[in-house]
Amino acid sequence: MRARHASLGARRAREFEAFVAGAAGRLLHAATLLTAESPDANPRARRLLSLSLAHTYACWDRLHGEDPYDRARQLLAARFARSAWHRYGGPLRHRRPAAGPLAALTPRERLILVLRLYEGVAEEQAAALLGLPVERVRTICDRATVTLLRPTAAQARPVAPRAGAATP
């Protein structure tokens, strides 16, 4: 009996290690985008990923054919949303100075943008995961995209004239 449990535990550990080897890099990148940290210095993203993977491992035997990557991504998003809520004392609205490419966005905008554009989660799934109406998810995603694509006056830099261009 004890040998059987040891064998099952070893198989479970091997399966999980194979999953982590394939998925951890992408999940870490998603967590780094969520936390708006720089890829070189991302302790919050690494902690978020570690906690999500630990929870995924804890429920590994209960997945029963469910996609472990989808589960880990859901846990990552939920942990980020919960930590942002508690950290900023509100519904993911306040901004924190950060250096990442999505630093100009609020935590809620980052969460929706990463789920929709980076992870490819459908609007309906993102809405269900976050407990928001589909229209709200679409609006937040559109607004976040516009924010990233249209730099503010402070972010815009003057364009130098091309060499050989005629000047008036």
Rank of each mutant, 00 (worst) to 15 (best):
A18C: 09
A126R: 00
A31Y: 03
V134S: 11
E109V: 02
R95N: 10
R108I: 03
A160G: 06
A36S: 11
R44C: 05
S50P: 00
E119R: 05
S38E: 14
A72G: 10
A126L: 03
R12G: 02
P101H: 08
R46H: 05
R157Y: 07
F19Y: 13
L51I: 08
F19I: 11
T152L: 08
A122H: 10
V146T: 12
A13R: 15
R62Q: 15
P151L: 12
D40M: 08
V121R: 04
M1I: 02
A163W: 13
G90A: 15
A84T: 03
A165D: 14
D61S: 15
H55W: 11
A127T: 06
E109Q: 15
L111N: 02
A45W: 10
Y118Q: 03
A154T: 08
A6G: 07
L53P: 07
G90C: 14
R47Y: 07
T139K: 11
T145W: 05
L53G: 10
Y69C: 11
A21G: 10
A21N: 07
R136D: 05
R46L: 07
R2C: 02
R138F: 07
A72H: 06
E124P: 03
L53W: 10
Y69H: 12
P101A: 14
L75K: 08
P161V: 13
A104Y: 00
W85L: 11
A144F: 01
R116T: 02
L49Y: 07
A166G: 07
L51D: 14
L33E: 04
L117P: 00
L48Y: 09
P68R: 13
A154H: 05
T147F: 00
Y69L: 15
H5P: 00
R143T: 07
R138M: 09
E119Y: 02
E119T: 03
H5E: 15
V146L: 13
E123A: 15
A41T: 12
H29S: 08
A58T: 07
